[in-house]
């Protein structure tokens, strides 16, 4: 891989810049122009009326975690702990347990994410072999008034979940065979 180096010059500090007043006036005129445009400009406004109006997040925006569902609504997560291993903030806490259904075997008896510690890197989502954890909820992390409310448990994470489009084994629904 070759590296391109571009050399940029600092802008020269001319007498006009050093005289200070003309530059201040120039700055204020930009602000004033913007203000007038916001007041009378109709549709051409930069400011959004948040929270009534929201900007569309990019498709891969990492929002609050959610846990996905199996077809019957149970948690997809199998407590493999790949996410908690990958998590650089060490903020995913899973206790695995034996499932009554031998076809499932292992499931998370508890699954807690400390959203205050989370650095929103998305490694957990990348690590998950089961499409069980996602950050595509589109909900961005709210401020917490109290630390305890920042611990999201399994129920809370599942409440944002939906059925996955993946089937057991990792292929998309509708494809004719499994890959393994």
């Amino acid at each position: 891989m070759s590296v391109t180096v571009r050399i940029t010059q600092r802008p020269e500090r001319t007498l006009r810049v050093q005289a200070y007043i003309p530059e201040v006036i120039r700055g204020l005129s930009v602000t004033t122009r913007q203000m007038l445009r916001n007041l009378f400009g109709g549709k051409d406004i930069t400011t959004i009326q948040y929270p009534e109006v929201k900007r569309r997040y990019p498709e891969r925006y990492r929002g609050l975690h959610r846990l996905m569902h199996r077809d019957d609504g149970q948690v997809r997560c199998v407590a493999c702990m790949c996410c908690s291993t990958a998590c650089p903030a060490n903020c995913i806490h899973i206790v695995a347990a034996e499932h009554d259904d031998n076809g499932i075997e292992k499931y998370p008896a508890t699954f807690v994410i400390d959203e205050l510690r989370c650095i929103v890197c998305g490694f957990c989502v990348e690590a998950c072999p089961c499409d069980a954890i996602r950050m595509d909820s589109g909900v961005h992390v709210q401020p917490f008034l109290d630390r305890d409310t920042a611990f999201f448990d399994k129920g809370e994470l599942l409440s944002r979940g939906t059925a996955s489009i993946a089937t057991q084994g990792g292929t998309f629904k509708g494809s004719s065979h499994s890959h393994h």
């Binding site: 493999c80 072999p129 393994h180």
Partner: peptide, 11 residues
């Protein structure tokens, strides 16, 4: 060997 292996690694 892998023909019939379940590749259950996550569990």
């Amino acid at each position: 060997i892998l023909v019939n292996h379940p590749v259950d690694c996550p569990i």
